[in-house]
């Protein structure tokens, strides 16, 4: 059944985030031949419309206002609800990002609809659009359908394939005028603590440190490895509790959930708390002194030994590979 599906394009530092393209990929599955409309909200975002179209959106609607230069639930809700009213979509897809997690439940509530959060795959079976999502910290999965109202889902970054970019694709980008009023919460300041460049939840490669890293300085060799691989730095709760790094890096049941292509765990024992945040990574490498460490049970490849000896060697080896490539 063809459905019109709306996706929200999300930007970071002026560029579209990958999850926006993945949302179009998800929308393709949900639309079943129906139209895919990309939505961009912000200030000076008009030029990004073409890219959404190259990634598979049929058309783009933008809402621009200086009050939308930063995400606020009040501002974005007014903008997206105006687009929804205009477009009357049968499906909506957001990324399961800080923004999507904050905004989607409110929109769903306003639309009196259901919402399936943190989806990792979508398929059409027996006339039903079936969404798969992890539950119990990734230890189980559930398949869900929407039984009443609009089909609304947020997708976990790095799980649903985007559509191949086609630079010859063209489509219409139009703007919708929305009067944004009454922001009840105002952002006064933003303190950037996350590692520059690579976003942990979207990173294809994550290098993670645990108690075995021993100190704040101990993260340095991990950072060098991450630089070479274009990856992001993560940490176990143990490393955060010991003050070796900021809690913003924590991966686990409390903390972030990541599903990169490659996860390298350095000096992490593999407590269940940590595994909940990374066990669905595609390939896991464990480096630990203790051959009995739990992390080796979930790892695809393991090296038993001192991370301070192994990690710099790995960095060198990957550098060589890059030079030869």
């Amino acid at each position: 059944m063809a459905r019109k599906v709306l996706i929200l394009g999300e930007t970071r530092e002026g560029s579209l985030r990958n999850v926006s393209f993945e949302a179009i990929g998800a929308a393709k599955l949900a639309a079943d031949g129906g139209e895919i409309v990309g939505v961009l909200i912000g200030e000076g975002i008009q030029s990004l419309g073409a890219e959404l179209i190259q990634y598979g959106a049929d058309r783009v609607v933008t809402v621009e206002d200086e009050k939308l230069s930063q995400y606020t639930s009040d501002g974005y809700a007014q903008a997206i609800l105006a687009v929804i009213e205009e477009e009357k979509p049968e499906g909506i897809i957001f990324g399961h990002t800080a923004l999507g997690k904050d905004l989607a439940p409110r929109i769903a509530s306003k639309l009196n609809s259901g919402l399936i959060s943190d989806v990792t795959s979508i398929e059409e079976t027996g006339g039903n659009l079936v969404f798969t999502r992890p539950i119990y910290s990734g230890k189980a999965f559930e398949k869900k359908i929407v039984t009443d109202g609009i089909i609304f889902a947020t997708i976990r970054p790095n799980n649903i394939d985007p559509v191949q970019k086609d630079e010859t694709r063209t489509g219409d980008t139009s703007s919708l005028n929305v009067e944004i009023k009454d922001l009840r919460a105002i952002i006064k300041d933003v303190v950037r603590k996350a590692t520059e460049g690579v976003d942990l939840s979207e990173a294809k490669v994550v290098i993670s440190g645990g108690r075995g890293v021993k100190s704040e300085e101990g993260f340095e060799p991990l950072k060098e490895l991450a630089d070479v691989l274009g990856g992001a730095i993560g940490a176990s709760r143990g490393a955060c509790d010991a003050d070796y790094c900021d809690y913003s890096l924590q991966i686990g049941q409390t903390g972030k959930v990541v599903t990169p292509d490659l996860y390298i765990a350095c000096g992490i024992s593999g407590a269940i708390q940590h595994l909940a945040g990374m066990s669905n990574s595609k390939v896991i490498v464990a480096i630990n002194k203790d051959p009995e460490a739990n992390i080796f049970k979930v790892a695809d490849y393991g090296i038993v030994g001192d991370l301070f000896e192994i990690v710099p060697l790995l960095t060198e080896e990957f550098k060589k590979l890059k030079v030869n490539a």
């Binding site: 259901g114 999965f141 559930e142 039984t147 049970k297 979930v298 790892a299 695809d300 490849y301 393991g302």
Partner: peptide, 17 residues
């Protein structure tokens, strides 16, 4: 507004190398 059709456990991961 939504319904769970099925709950399942992820396939057991084989021991790594």
């Amino acid at each position: 507004k939504t319904k769970t059709l099925e709950i399942y456990l992820p396939p057991k991961k084989e021991a790594g190398k």
